Amino acid sequence: MSLVDELKIKYPAANAWQFGDSPELANELAALVVKGIKTASCGSLASYQQEDGAPLIGSYNIILDGQDVPVCVIRLISMRLLRFCDVTAELARKEGEGDLSLGYWRREHQKFFLREGYFSDEMELVAEEFEVIEVL
């Protein structure tokens, strides 16, 4: 039995996934979560609507690194909808990336959403905040 399978027994209905869109970014962001620096994330509403089993507040997630190895378990504690242009400096800081500034967040997330295929200042995002439950 794999570690992911064992964790899914311990945390029923947990999903296992990576942050980012490359192994390097997945490693970087997973490390920020483990260190307690990254406590929030966001994605486009359109992407969330295409996923099977959208996340729910209180749900557990197994965070994988860029090699699909579990590094921690997080629990979703809040979710909200907002437009890209309405992201605050506080949310940017909670995302824990770069210099923690809103300017950095906007630049890097615009690049990310363009890689996904769509970006607009008015695009709707799902912002999530989470807590680390277990570091593996």
Rank of each mutant, 00 (worst) to 15 (best):
P12C: 04
A31E: 14
Q18C: 15
R115V: 11
R83H: 09
I62G: 10
I9Y: 03
R75K: 15
D65E: 12
S44Y: 08
R93N: 06
S47E: 14
V33N: 05
I74E: 01
D52A: 08
F84W: 11
R106W: 07
R75A: 03
N27R: 06
L32P: 03
E28G: 02
W105L: 02
L91M: 09
L56H: 07
A13Q: 15
A89S: 12
E51S: 03
P55S: 01
F19C: 09
V34W: 14
E90N: 02
D99L: 12
C72H: 12
L45P: 01
I9M: 00
F112W: 06
G58T: 04
L3I: 14
P55F: 11
R80A: 01
H109D: 10
L29G: 03
L7S: 12
A14Q: 07
D121I: 09
E6P: 03
R115H: 14
I74T: 14
R75E: 12
A46Y: 13
K8R: 15
M79P: 00
F19E: 08
S41L: 01
I77S: 04
L81N: 15
G117T: 09
V4K: 14
V4A: 08
K38M: 09
L91V: 05
M79H: 03
S22I: 05
H109R: 11
F112L: 09
L29Q: 10
Q49I: 00
S101F: 06
S47D: 13
S44H: 08
A31M: 10
G117Q: 10
I62T: 07
K111N: 04
K35E: 15
I74V: 15
R93Y: 03
R107T: 05
D5Q: 05
E90Q: 14
E97R: 11
G103M: 12
Q18F: 02
S120E: 06
L56F: 00
P23R: 11
F113K: 07
D86L: 09
D86N: 14
S78V: 07
